[in-house]
């Protein structure tokens, strides 16, 4: 199977305290300022380049125009409905993926036999590029939300599954032995020892799953002409002719959506995983 995305769960390595250091308020402010400065610089460069009109401005509108259009879209119910449709599909798909991947990951991570039996199936399934099965799914499920949820779940299940497996395998054997020495039943050990211990990696999996899910969800909306979603909105704006500003604005906002989902997951991780880097496992 592929390598874990972070090394938090790998126990053979010596402890590195403060793997994810908490930044001080001043550090956070500095990071924010640096980030803003970078974005501002990029926007300015884009603006200047577009104003040079080396490319037809109807195809490449200046940054200022795009930002204005993006702000207009943010309060436009017609756009927000599409954002909502995409969000429902992505969150639904990722939730479905998590419901499958986390229990399965615990099983595979805990039992050698499960790992041996399931690895060939998993390896062959995950070799299928998610986007390639969209036409098949459309044939079976139509172009509605259930197709989108399914395709998102199909691509989101892998990062969740592998990170859960590595998280579970990384559980400290002393912690497991402690639970066993106190005769804690297996199911309770899973809930109270294995899952919390694997949680940092599971949440990393969730972060990756949301990012991939959003990409593939929007791709599905564009590829097969669903009747809603941000992808559908972008596609329609592109076909309408000379609405490049709307297309760019929608794409930018899709990026912002991804950024927010990532940020929320990171915040959730910081809240839930107070112990990370503070103790073993």
């Amino acid at each position: 199977m592929n390598a874990p995305v972070t090394t938090t769960g790998v126990r053979a390595e010596p402890r590195r305290p403060g793997v994810r250091r908490r930044t001080s308020p001043r550090g956070a402010l500095a990071a924010f300022l640096r980030g803003t400065a970078g974005a501002a610089l990029l926007t300015l460069a884009f603006e200047v380049f577009a104003r040079l009109e080396l490319v037809d401005p109807r195809l490449l509108p200046p940054a200022g125009v795009i930002l204005g259009e993006a702000l207009r879209l943010l309060v436009d119910p017609a756009f927000l409905v599409e954002v909502w449709a995409t969000l429902v599909a992505v969150l639904g798909g990722v939730a479905l993926a998590a419901a499958i991947a986390v229990p399965l990951g615990v099983l595979i991570g805990s039992y050698r036999l499960a790992a041996l039996g399931l690895t060939p199936i998993i390896d062959s399934l995950r070799s299928v590029p998610g986007i390639a099965i969209i036409p098949l799914l459309v044939l079976v499920m139509g172009q509605g939300v259930s197709m989108k949820v399914t395709i998102v779940a199909f691509v989101a299940v892998w990062p969740l599954l592998f990170n859960t497996v590595y998280g579970v395998r990384g559980v400290d054997p002393v912690a497991m032995e402690t639970a066993r020495a106190f005769r804690v039943p297996v199911h309770r050990t899973w809930w109270r020892v294995v899952l919390p211990s694997a949680l940092p990696l599971v949440l990393t999996g969730l972060r990756l799953a949301l990012a991939t899910g959003l990409t593939v969800g929007i791709a599905a909306e564009i590829a097969v002409g669903t009747r809603d979603g941000v992808g559908y909105f972008i596609l329609r704006a592109s076909y309408a002719g000379f609405h490049a500003d709307t297309v760019f604005a929608a794409v930018t906002l899709a990026g912002v959506l991804g950024y927010l989902m990532n940020g929320i997951t990171v915040a959730l991780t910081n809240r839930l995983v107070v112990w990370d880097g503070k103790g073993p496992s």
């Binding site: 032995e177 106190f182 804690v184 039943p185 109270r192 949680l199 995983v273 107070v274 103790g279 073993p280």
Partner: peptide, 27 residues
């Protein structure tokens, strides 16, 4: 009951002190 040498790994870092002590009692 067992007290292990490696207390840092035997105590569960996601449980508070009280929860660590209480955990085996739930069983």
């Amino acid at each position: 009951a067992v007290v292990f040498q490696d207390y840092g790994r035997s105590l569960f870092p996601w449980m508070k002190v009280g929860q660590n002590v209480e955990f085996p009692l739930e069983t």
